[in-house]
């Protein structure tokens, strides 16, 4: 974990959420909404945007109030703060993008119980200054949105033969319907995690090989 001590390390707080501590691929948090809404790329992006708003706003508020929140009721306080922002997102989406709101269904409201958001409040925002919490929240949200987009795009391409509703392969393509159905979500995320494990393992092998070379 990076412990940023001065402003020059703000960048590190920001960047870590995108790749090294990616909430989905590395920490496996916030899976429920991510598997449910990622049957198309555009739904993934919309969900990512909504989560970004909630995470950034609540991180800011929690870190500004961190001296005033009593320790015993902190979780409840965080949840209520998060729930208020989710209510805002829910109403705004309903008014501005009724179609997307209908597609995502109850999952917009379920952002309240996204463990990623509560986890960041507890692990980071409640212990750091607002500016650091903001950077952390932005990084984490971009990482989350990126993961949602990857999953949504691959599932849409394989399951529907299209991306953003633009057909890719022509009429002869037989779509893998399973990919846009629920089991496809689990399988695809399994594959992606497998790929990440493989990357990590390869890196480790390389490091070991180099260490051996140095030794000999």
């Amino acid at each position: 974990m990076n412990q940023a001590k001065h402003p020059s390390q703000l960048y590190a707080e920001f960047i870590k959420g995108i790749w090294k501590e990616n909430p989905v691929f590395v920490a496996v948090l916030g899976m429920c909404p991510m598997l449910a809404v990622t049957n198309s790329a555009i739904n993934g992006l919309a969900m990512g945007a909504a989560t970004t708003f909630v995470l950034v706003c609540s991180s800011l508020l929690v870190s500004s109030l961190r001296k005033f929140i009593p320790k015993q009721v902190r979780i409840t306080t965080y949840i209520i703060i998060i729930a208020s922002f989710v209510t805002i997102v829910d109403y705004v989406l309903k008014a501005a993008f009724p179609g997307t709101h209908k597609d995502l269904g109850a999952f917009i409201q379920l952002i309240v119980v996204n463990c990623l958001i509560l986890g960041r409040q507890e692990a980071f925002a409640s212990r750091n200054t607002p500016i650091k919490a903001l950077m952390d929240a932005l990084g984490m949200s971009i990482g989350f949105t990126f993961a949602l987009f990857c999953l949504g795009a691959t599932r849409e391409i394989l399951g529907n033969g299209s991306i953003f509703d633009i057909s890719l392969f022509g009429d002869n393509f037989e779509p893998w319907v399973i990919m846009i159905l629920p089991p496809g979500g689990f399988l695809m995320l399994g594959m992606i995690l497998l790929f990440f494990n493989w990357l990590q393992q390869r890196k480790q092998h390389k490091l070991q090989a180099r260490a051996r070379e140095v030794m000999s």
Binding site: L187, L194, Q201
Partner: peptide, 14 residues
């Protein structure tokens, strides 16, 4: 070894 852990669980769940 590469599939152990969460990746395997995901595929089982699938």
């Amino acid at each position: 070894a590469v599939i152990k852990g969460t990746a395997l669980n995901m595929i089982i769940a699938g």
